[in-house]
Design a protein around this nucleic acid. Structure first.
Lengths: 338, 338
DNA sequence: CGAGTCGTTGCAACCGGTTGCAAAAAATCA
DNA sequence: TGATTTTTTGCAACCGGTTGCAACGACTCG
């Protein structure tokens, strides 16, 4: 159906090699030949077939994009950033939806069958070994939103979740909350475990602070609402660090349903700073995760790996900071003028 | 790097054809040969390379998935459904992010270069001709969330937006609102234009009803909030049909910021029934769009087209219905018991 | 036991490109 | 101008598979 190199060669009156060379940059073609070929190609509407050329070159310019979270709206943005970032560099995302799957083997085989040049795993919940399976199979891989490790076995880019946990605890304590809690995502998620660790580290090192924690079933509204509803039935903390924004929003709705008010009765701080957190009817104080920086870095890193597959893995960490909105009370001694 | 057919053939002591045939269902191989080959393949960890085989078979099992909206959370669900639907049928989504792009040519060429077997365009805002470009180029295509047409030139699956407009108008009128308005998405979106038409059709045909309309800049929270803020500065309608849920949520936040209450002061009805609409702190009355049904139908249709590329295009329409929540007042004469 | 069937197998060509190599053509130099 | 170097070009093999075809062997049947 599509026009092939052979037809172009015939029309231009040159060999197939000549046509191939005009479309391979850096190859040696004379001005005259190039013009004849370009003319013929133009006329026939010829475009070289990437798939066919990949057989000899070993490059498909396809990148496997592996995702396992399609519930959290933040991933829509992640999606957008990844697909555009790849496209802008002439790479094509071949998608793998991992929902429910935890064994890497299937994905590895599938992506190998399609000869992708590399793989980006975007998930904060997958176990650290997951991405390693791609590397073991010989595929360049970078794990975005990964758990931090000083000497990683594969390339990772993300945030320091323990730091975020500490930041949250310090912030709550500085606001004068003396009874604080962490309401995490799923107990199995590495991101949640790390955030908890950092949170406890600071809380337990500070005198006169009561700290507790619990987990939700998923990083989702429903899970957050359910967990906060449950928490409100017992003795409650003064402020909660929720493992994620969407979880926070679920918690906020549970609090509202219980007839309580934020930040008057309870303080909430989230993590991610997703777009919704800034919506006026949500107005969530949260820790900003630089999604754009992370995705860009991941794309750049995978591209670098294509050229130098053997370069030693490194970890790239991005800074997080508090975005002040309306779900925490002001620091004590701070006159709430206005 | 990866194991090839040749190596398996060598280890099994058979010809390359024999190996190929054991992995091609329907091909003729004796029991003995098959066993030898399977044994060898197992041992080496061989998987046939789809890319290579596509050269002869003309099938890559890749489907181009073309999207242009990465702001509206409903598309995260659409994404999930499409990628899983395709995967479940052994197809692979190759993603095209169309943000900002309106010319189909680039996407057509790109997807042709990758020899995708078919294309799914998922957008309610693209002009009807967009998807046609793929068909013209010889690629099977189905347009999901497309504008309805009785005799389409390409396969479409979606909802009847004019019907939804009429349904919204009838609902508002039945609730006793006498001054109603449509707050649409972008004026260029076909979905918005059609919803408006249906809305006006009913409103104008009903005596003693005042009707008006306006457009937002995009299907987004910010656009909805901005437009409703603007509307509240003039004489306002009693109830608004917003072109989309996320737009409705923006409108709700503007209304709250203005110190007004829903549904007491203003009624709102949305469209989509995205997950968030059901969140207790949003609780939006809306028209349900059967996203799952649409995506499933689109995937099934594209698969059918792979086998019968010449089958005449058809339009598949899905029914919509009202989901009653808390942003419209009860019908008049209906005692609000409870 | 020989002829006729039928399922199995390998050869070789092909899918749409790329690329090493050697021959041909063009450019450079003496 | 002829010899030498450099550039351009086509041939042919290859990337990893598939498939038409003819040869082969086993099996059936008369």
């Amino acid at each position: 159906m599509a026009v092939t190199l052979k037809e172009v060669a015939a029309l231009a009156g040159v060999s197939r090699s000549a046509v191939s060379r005009t479309f391979t940059k850096g190859a040696s073609v004379s001005r005259g030949t190039r013009e004849k070929v370009e003319q013929a190609a133009q006329e026939l509407g010829y475009r070289p077939n990437v798939i066919a050329s990949s057989l000899s070159t070993g490059r498909t310019k396809m990148i496997g994009l592996v995702l396992d979270n399609f519930r959290n709206p933040i991933f829509l943005q992640v999606f957008d950033l990844f697909t555009r970032g790849l496209q802008d560099r002439g790479l094509r995302p071949l998608l793998v939806n991992l929902t429910g799957e935890t064994e890497p083997e299937n994905s590895v085989q599938m992506l190998q069958q399609y000869s992708v040049d590399g793989v980006i795993v975007a998930s904060s919940t997958l176990p650290p070994d997951f991405a390693k399976a791609f590397r073991t199979a010989g595929l360049p891989v970078v794990h975005a939103f990964a758990r931090h490790k000083p000497q990683p076995e594969i390339d990772i880019v993300g945030i320091d979740n323990r730091f975020c946990g500490r930041l949250a605890a310090r912030t709550l304590i500085a606001r004068g909350y003396s009874s604080i809690a962490f309401m995490g995502g799923p107990a199995t998620a590495t991101s949640t475990r790390d955030r908890l660790e950092g949170f406890l580290e600071v809380a337990q090192a500070t005198p006169d602070i009561t700290v507790s924690h619990s987990f939700s079933e998923a990083y989702s509204f429903r899970a957050g609402r359910a967990e906060m509803t449950r928490l409100l039935q017992g003795p409650r903390a003064q402020a909660y660090f929720c493992g994620d924004d969407v979880l926070s929003i679920g918690a906020l709705s549970a609090i509202a349903s219980a007839g309580l008010s934020v930040p008057r009765d309870i303080g909430i701080i989230g993590l991610n700073d997703m777009e919704m957190a800034g919506w006026e009817n949500i107005n969530l104080t949260t820790i900003h995760q630089p999604t754009a920086g992370i995705t860009t870095a991941a794309v750049e890193r995978i591209q670098a790996l294509l050229d130098a597959p053997q370069s030693p893995p490194k970890a790239q960490l991005f800074d997080c900071h508090i975005v002040e909105r309306g779900t925490l009370r002001a620091p004590p001694g701070n006159d709430q003028a206005g």
